[in-house]
């Protein structure tokens, strides 16, 4: 399998209420081993997946949000968050986890994986993608 395709994971759902967010992240982690061109977009309720300060202890649910921090180690560093979705929910990027990666082409400098994008840019991301996995 030498061909590299543009994969886009579209995350539009909140965590915990349903299992989609957790099982979507499992696909991303497994998929990282396939050396494809991977982007993740978080829009609509999907932005809640990246909220800081998640503590699911008392709910008895598994808190999988720390796993997002591992994405950088898997070379998954194109994380797009839609501005309009954040604003509609009264939030900004400051409310989200600051996901980073180490850039091997730049002496392993730590860089942000998080990119704030407009709805128009999300449209372009979708149009450019070859495989869209929606969760």
């Amino acid at each position: 399998m030498s061909d590299i395709k543009k994969f886009l994971y579209v995350n539009r759902r909140a965590p915990y209420g349903t299992v989609y967010a957790l099982e979507s992240l499992e696909v991303v982690l497994i998929g990282a081993a396939f050396d494809q061109d991977v982007s993740l977009v978080f829009m609509d309720d999907g932005v809640f997946q990246l909220k800081k300060d998640q503590n699911s202890e008392a709910s008895g649910m598994k808190n999988f949000s720390p796993t997002f921090n591992a994405l950088g180690d898997y070379d998954v560093n194109k994380i797009y968050v839609e501005k309009e979705s954040l604003e509609a929910r009264g939030m900004t990027m400051d409310d989200l986890m600051a996901l980073t990666y180490e850039d091997e082409d730049d002496d392993w400098a730590e860089k942000s994986s998080m990119h704030l994008v407009s709805a128009d840019e999300v449209r372009d991301l979708m149009e450019e993608s070859e495989v869209v996995l929606s969760f």
Binding site: K5, F7, Y20, E26, V27, I30, F34, V132, L133
Partner: peptide
């Protein structure tokens, strides 16, 4: 089988169509 089978399907196929809730 594993989740890799889904990624492989995405890589190998011309189209991947998702049916869900």
């Amino acid at each position: 089988s594993g989740l890799g089978q889904l990624i492989e399907a995405g890589v190998q196929s011309d189209r991947l169509v998702v049916f869900g809730d």
